[in-house]
């Protein structure tokens, strides 16, 4: 193997470590997650799929951050990497309550798990068909010994009631429930552990519009009751705008823009964000459409374009974008964008 090829397989991991700030429950700094591509007889690594490539954001306690982007841009991988569910990270930091998640021993990690939970995308495949609902919700509670055995039943009833399920649902199996009810079971399962932080990975995209509204309302009510912090992953921008306090826009493993919901939606800065928002269909037959239609499709994350990853589809691309990787710039307080157009230097 040539020297050049070998050097391309080394994952760069230079970043300035962040100091813990107690107002943030979660601090993600230059987080990277690469998946190796194996080839050849002895399956050696020939390259990486750069699923998450340097994502930086902070999440305040009790708020919701929305993460949007096209499919394949690394939204879900970001969520799973934060929870240490996708193997080891490839670089960067994840500070949960000031504690680097990836430094924990398996025993410490186990103690940490109840604090951070996930609601999965598809309520049809994320519930075990062989377990009754009471067991699905209660299994982890028992494993982590969160409540004494004599209070266990009442505890589960209470959680199910909060999530809009009836006590007699406990002995039923997942196949007896509709999509919306299954999603309630998933939510109850996550909340039974009394978490502080929940990753909601497209919790409503598999559901009908009227059921969607029920689940969104439920998530908001529970957030107030339990003082939860959500990372809300979705490709439905209207839902994200409704539920989030801050929004991050991802493109090909990068967080291209990040700020408060009002800032992002009223004043999108990155050309990709603009294009994404202009593509939202508005339920008004006479609405004027100034649509920015992106040409082509998202490039392969295994071999992303040099310079700014968006330059191949960007309408405002300059010569500089093709060679130089842009840095994160704070345009307004709390509104970050990764684009040369806003880089004054």
């Amino acid at each position: 193997m040539s020297e050049q090829k070998k050097s391309s397989l080394v994952i760069e991991n230079n970043f300035t470590p962040v100091e813990y700030d107690p107002q943030y429950i979660l601090m993600v700094n230059a987080l990277k997650k690469y998946f190796p591509i194996k080839d050849g007889l002895i399956a050696h690594t020939v390259g990486y799929v750069k699923a998450v490539d340097g994502v930086t954001f902070n999440l305040k306690r009790g708020t919701t951050m929305g993460l949007v982007g096209e499919s394949g841009c690394g939204k879900t991988t970001t969520g799973r990497t934060i929870l240490r569910l996708a193997g080891e990270k490839s670089g960067g930091q994840v500070l949960f309550n000031g504690q680097e998640v990836y430094d924990l021993t398996p025993k410490e990690m186990r103690a940490m798990r109840p604090k951070m939970q996930i609601i999965f995308q598809d309520p049809f495949s994320s519930l075990s068909p062989r377990l009754p609902v009471g067991e699905i919700i209660g299994e982890a509670v028992r494993e982590h010994k969160l409540v004494p055995a004599n209070e266990f039943d009442d505890y589960i009833d209470n959680i199910m009631d909060k999530c809009g399920l009836q006590p007699f649902h406990k002995d039923r199996y997942p196949h007896e429930f509709s999509g919306g009810q299954r999603q309630r079971i998933c939510i109850a399962r996550a909340l039974a552990l009394n978490p502080e932080f929940v990753v909601c990975d497209e919790p409503v995209s598999a559901l009908d519009v009227s059921i969607q509204a029920q689940i969104i309302n439920l998530l908001r009510d529970l957030q107030e009751q339990f003082k939860l912090t959500y990372l809300f992953i979705s490709h439905d921008l209207s839902v994200v705008e409704h539920i989030s306090d801050s929004v991050g826009v991802m493109y090909l493993g990068d967080l291209v823009e990040y700020g408060s919901t009002e800032d992002i939606f009223s004043n999108p800065l990155h050309p990709y964000t603009e294009a994404l928002f202009s593509a939202i269909p508005v339920p008004d037959p006479n609405a004027k459409m100034n649509r920015i239609v992106l040409e082509g499709s998202i490039p392969s994350p295994a071999n992303p374009p040099a310079g700014c990853k968006f330059h191949t589809r960007c309408a405002r691309c300059t010569e500089r974008c093709k060679h130089e990787v842009p840095k994160q710039v704070e345009v307004e307080p709390g509104h970050f964008v990764v684009c040369h157009l806003y880089d004054k230097e």
């Binding site: 509709s178 519009v209 009227s210 059921i211 969607q212 509204a213 029920q214 969104i216 309302n217 908001r220 921008l237 209207s238 839902v239 705008e241 409704h242 939606f265 928002f277 939202i280 508005v282 339920p283």
Partner: peptide
């Protein structure tokens, strides 16, 4: 009417989404 109110719209801020009761 219920269908339209239960879908959040970008640019329209509402506190709580309407959800059609029952099934």
């Amino acid at each position: 009417i219920g269908l339209m109110e239960s879908k959040p719209v970008v640019g329209k801020k509402i506190d709580k989404l309407y959800s059609i009761p029952g099934k």
